[in-house]
Amino acid sequence: MDEMKQVVLEYVRREYLEEDDDREVEVDTPLISGGIVDSFSMVSLKRFLEKKYGIQIPDADASPEAFDTVESIVVLVQRFGGK
């Protein structure tokens, strides 16, 4: 689980933070409600998780709440069989 957290955290930092970004992202940082990831850009994260962990996350489950922190994302991935 810790390894998965690291992988997701690394992706989020690389994909969503700008070069000169002074915001810090940790596993419990609110991503969507915190304005770091918007719902429009969230699709690339969903696609990354599906590809990386060989799972399908139904759109209905890919809610802004479920994607709001790295911790909640990891819970979601595991719920759909990601290891």
Binding site: Y16, E18, D38, F40, S41, V43, S44, R47
Partner: peptide, 23 residues
């Protein structure tokens, strides 16, 4: 990622895959 809201809406209405790049 900073395109206008009307573009975001237009993309959502389209069946093509959407993706974004940093501003």
């Amino acid at each position: 990622r900073l395109v206008h809201a009307s573009i975001v809406d237009g993309m959502r209405l389209c069946k093509a895959m959407n993706d974004t790049y940093k501003h």
